[in-house]
């Protein structure tokens, strides 16, 4: 029976409710129903990681989550990473290490890297590359991204 479902969720610490069709992905709901367009669409099939969000402490590709699955969940998107106009150390490190060019992959990389540093504050280069294997970047060649994550790890430990 076509009809919309009422979903109540928490996004970046704030209660959010929205209406969606069961066939809509969480990515579509974030961008088209809720207006949070920081989360990007690349492949729409789970491979590129541009749509990465954090749900209940785990990173997932939001193109492979249904919007209705957000009911009762706690979601973090790129919009929740900075503290007002103060950028997060990861965001500063990405900027200062030139870890982005076109930028479409960046929100996904930041959300993924943030989850990594929360559980492993001092990862090796290998651990960083392995963790970020589900995030693709066509521009940077990855080295600068890895260096930015290492730099952010240092900043966070010094803070």
């Amino acid at each position: 029976m076509p009809g919309k479902t009422y979903v109540q969720t928490t996004i970046n610490g704030e209660h959010v409710d929205f209406l969606c069709e069961p066939r809509q992905s969480l990515l579509e709901c974030l961008r088209d129903e809720i207006g949070l367009t920081g989360t990007k669409e690349g492949c729409n099939d789970g491979n590129c990681g541009a749509c990465t969000v954090n749900i209940d402490g785990r990173i997932v590709t939001s193109c492979l989550v249904l919007g209705v699955e957000a009911e009762g969940a706690n979601i973090e998107t790129i919009e929740g990473v900075a503290d007002g106009s103060n950028l997060h150390p990861l965001q500063l490190a990405f900027l200062e290490n030139a870890a982005l060019q076109c930028g479409i992959c960046t929100p996904g990389f930041i959300i993924s890297s943030k989850a990594l540093l929360e559980q492993n504050p001092n990862p090796t280069e290998h651990e960083i590359r392995f963790w970020l294997a589900n995030n693709l970047c066509r521009c940077t060649g990855y080295d600068k991204i890895v260096r930015a994550v290492q730099d952010a790890a240092k900043r966070l430990q010094e803070a």
């Binding site: 789970g46 990594l116 589900n134 995030n135």
Partner: peptide, 9 residues
């Protein structure tokens, strides 16, 4: 199986 994000699901 997949990467970190896929392993989350």
């Amino acid at each position: 199986i997949g990467g970190t994000q896929i392993q989350g699901r």
